[in-house]
Design a binder for these strands. Structure first.
Lengths: 209, 209, 209, 209
DNA sequence: CAATAAGCGAGACGGTACGTCACGTCTTGAT
DNA sequence: ATCAAGACGTGACGTACCGTCTCGCTTATTG
């Protein structure tokens, strides 16, 4: 019982994933989701299509894998200053989104404000239950950290006791996605600041009481 | 004032749009975006494929037309009670989104929380510039009314003078889309209320000043 | 009873044929038979498609009309020297065929030895009985003159009494078409001479008797 | 001498050609060239359209393949009696041509003297250079045998020394094609005999010298 | 001179087929 | 058991062109 897992019979899988995902990524950013063809990836990566399908049962799965790998760990700052922390965090997310926004757009449409890849991801999630579950799990995990930060801020009195961290975060993240997918307006640090300010402060007159 | 439009030469267009869009809508809700085939629509609507392509240069365009027609006029309440008005409005939007959420899901996935159609729309917008522009225009127009309502509320003192209506609205609408497309959580009246409350009131402790 | 035919009621046909045929001819020589589109001809000639179809019930009919008009009267020489006369006549035919051989070939295929138009004509004749009859009538009429010349030559002793003019002419004309359509070899005056020589003289040894 | 061909990698081609060509042949003779639809062939042969296009890049290519296969080996008799040999050979060719003459004609036009298929072949040759080359090669090869026979006849004195075999053969084969494609007259054994007689003997009076 | 009949331009429509693309499955032989 | 190679089925897409139709307008002949 030396090894971790009993070595199964037959030839072991070669280390192909890396090469394939690299090539796929290239196609994805160069020609967008539609322009990502499994045949092309196979040929360019010097890999048999069969092999690709053995690992990713679907083009969608492959694409998701590519993007998942692309998702570098976003650090959640927790300095005690909730306003600054949120702003920083949102800016990081915005950076990632903006990167995908530019993918697959022809040069002439370089300023195209839409965001194909993110939407394709949602589509893939809708097409395959497993992808949906996977993505939701990923997001849940990622968000859990932020929600914890918010919760701590609430407990130490930085946020009102009746604050619902989840709703608050929906407002913040949602605004980013809304701009990305629907209105197409820019999402940058300046916007993140305004957003955080509005969400934290609220918009009711101070003369409330 | 002889007439609004001089009758143009050539055979007038027959009233095909309605029938075609009806059929297309049926397919969309029954089998989802992928299951919408131009050939099938043509055949079922008793229309030549050529004719369809004469009006909608692409399957994407057809689908957008279907959904655009589906978008019944959402009324924007303006009673003077901004909290109630916003809640009502958001609920209406949520209703529309939920309707699309159920479209094209196989029965086994009836409870699938994802929302293919909306995402497909975003994808279509990313694929064809004209669709993107169209959609953004539609949304801009629809939102303009709400923004006006918010602006009035601000001017009559219901909202703080430094309120940015646009940001505020991003938070509200964005949250809905975020739940629909990303987290898959439900969007109903109860959520709309919590959302409006959080956004209006903010989350900072009242003892602030 | 003044005119040849009682003038019919309704607007008389305008003089469109010329323009239409001109345009069609242009397309035919420029892009070949397939490249001849009725829509294009209509538009370019500033004529309604309906009008075209009123005169030529089919694209085939139109094309035949074009080529028929192209067929300038070939004169049949009858000097008494049957060998020279035949050679001259064949050369004229060869000229016409060569002209059609070049039609619709892209430049790179300028030396393409095939002859689309002539074949298309035969195809059209096969598709529509009326075209077939028309073409055969035209050819019959044209050939009648040559056959008469041959017959006269036979009667005045220039050809053997048992000569069958029709068979003889088949050999001559047939050879040209065979080269044009099948082998693709050139047809020029030199060939016409060799051909006539062979057909007239025969190939059996003179020591025959 | 390990083997004629190293077994190439990949799934070997299934034996589809036969079935496809059979079906295509059926359509061709039943409904003519226009009535030959790739979709129909695919469906009837139980073959994917894609697969057909993988082998025959064009409907034209498919049709040519059908006819090429149909071209059963024509034997060239070489008994030493050039007159009889030629007659027999021409009759064989005539048989093949007559078979194609009947293809694709509606019953009412059963006696239609035209010959669509042959012409379509010529058209296909004009449309695609590769088909043209192929066909010319086929014909060249087939004719080479006859030309050799003629040459031998010349050398052994059955034909005059100055005989040009090629020109002679043009006259014979050409006459058949001419009748088939242009005049529409019958081509049978009787005609072959008259043809050969005329071509061999010539038509000049014997009193020539 | 009005009624009628046909010609015409413009363009929408139905229909049929073509050729293409990409996905995902399969069948080989070789490692 | 995996891999490379590549053929195959499937389904749809978008295109092209033909020939028919439906308008409104124009130009002739006829009563």
């Amino acid at each position: 019982m030396t090894g971790k897992h009993a070595s199964r019979p037959g030839r072991p899988r070669s280390d192909i994933d890396g090469r394939a995902l690299d090539v796929a990524l290239g196609h994805l950013v160069a020609h967008g989701y539609t322009g990502l063809s499994v045949d092309a990836v196979a040929q360019e990566a010097g890999v048999a299509k069969t092999t690709l399908y053995r690992r990713w049962p679907t083009k969608d799965h492959l694409a998701v894998a590519v993007i998942a790998r692309m998702q570098d760990a976003v650090e959640v700052p927790d300095t005690g200053d909730i306003r600054a922390d949120l702003t920083d965090y949102l800016e990081q997310i915005a950076l990632g989104l903006n990167r995908m926004r530019r993918a697959g757009r022809p040069d002439e449409a370089a300023d195209d404000p839409s965001a194909g890849l993110v939407a394709e991801l949602a589509v893939a999630a809708a097409r395959h239950n497993d992808i949906g579950e996977l993505l939701r799990a990923v997001f849940a995990q990622r968000n859990a950290v932020v929600l914890a930060v918010l919760e701590r801020a609430r407990q130490r009195g930085e946020l009102r006791p009746d604050t619902e961290p989840e709703v608050l975060f929906d407002q913040l993240a949602g605004a980013l996605y809304y701009r990305l997918l629907v209105t197409g307006q820019p999402i940058d640090r300046a916007y993140a600041q305004r957003l955080v300010h509005s969400a934290l402060t609220g918009v009711l007159p101070a003369i409330e009481e």
